[in-house]
């Protein structure tokens, strides 16, 4: 674990990380139009971070991204998700009411019923919840692998 992989692997991982991240956020943002959604896209972005963890040294990775940033990613995703669900109550609706759908504002365009070609600005609160869950899964899965890797390291060094 103390050694990193060869320069070829590291460079490929660095280049592929950008494409994996962009693809993951595409899946998250188009969750209400195409197959996919928050969980799947978040897992893809977390896969990019895990690729960086296994290809590089752990100290180098912790120099680029801190553990605290993943933790705040996860917590802010959960808070945004529950906050979006709770925001319907002060507006006079019930919990989990899709109050943005059809309102004309953000994500509020009226959807043409039946088979259509897909408009990104529809579906009300569903894209917001997709983004929230995507951020949460990103932070959660990344920090699980980060904790397990540092657990192996402290085991090898400590005893």
């Amino acid at each position: 674990m103390s050694d990193c992989m060869s320069k070829l692997v590291r460079t490929t991982a660095d280049v592929m990380f950008l494409f994996i991240t962009v693809f993951g956020f595409y899946i998250v943002l188009h969750g209400h139009l195409t197959p996919g959604g928050g969980f799947q896209g978040g897992a893809i972005v977390a896969g990019g971070f895990i690729l960086l963890i296994v290809a590089n040294r752990l100290e180098d990775f912790l120099k680029w991204f801190q553990k605290r940033s993943f933790q705040s990613c996860e917590v802010s995703g959960l808070v945004l998700f529950i906050g979006t669900a709770l925001a319907a109550i002060p507006l006079g609706y019930i919990f989990f009411k899709n109050f943005l759908n059809g309102a004309g504002g953000l994500f509020g365009q009226a959807v043409p019923f039946g088979i259509n070609s897909g408009i990104l600005n529809t579906a009300g609160t569903i894209p917001i919840m997709n983004i929230a869950v995507g951020i949460e899964v990103l932070g959660g899965l990344s920090i699980i692998v980060l904790y397990m890797t540092s657990g192996i390291r402290s085991h090898e060094e400590g005893e």
Binding site: L33, P35, G37, F39, G114, I115, S117
Partner: peptide
């Protein structure tokens, strides 16, 4: 999924949503 669907005969969606929950 209605985006560019070839027909309107669709499989049951609830089990797929529950499978998503189960996987996570």
């Amino acid at each position: 999924i209605f985006t560019g669907a070839p027909s309107l005969a669709m499989v049951m969606p609830t089990v797929q949503a529950l499978t998503l929950t189960s996987i996570v």
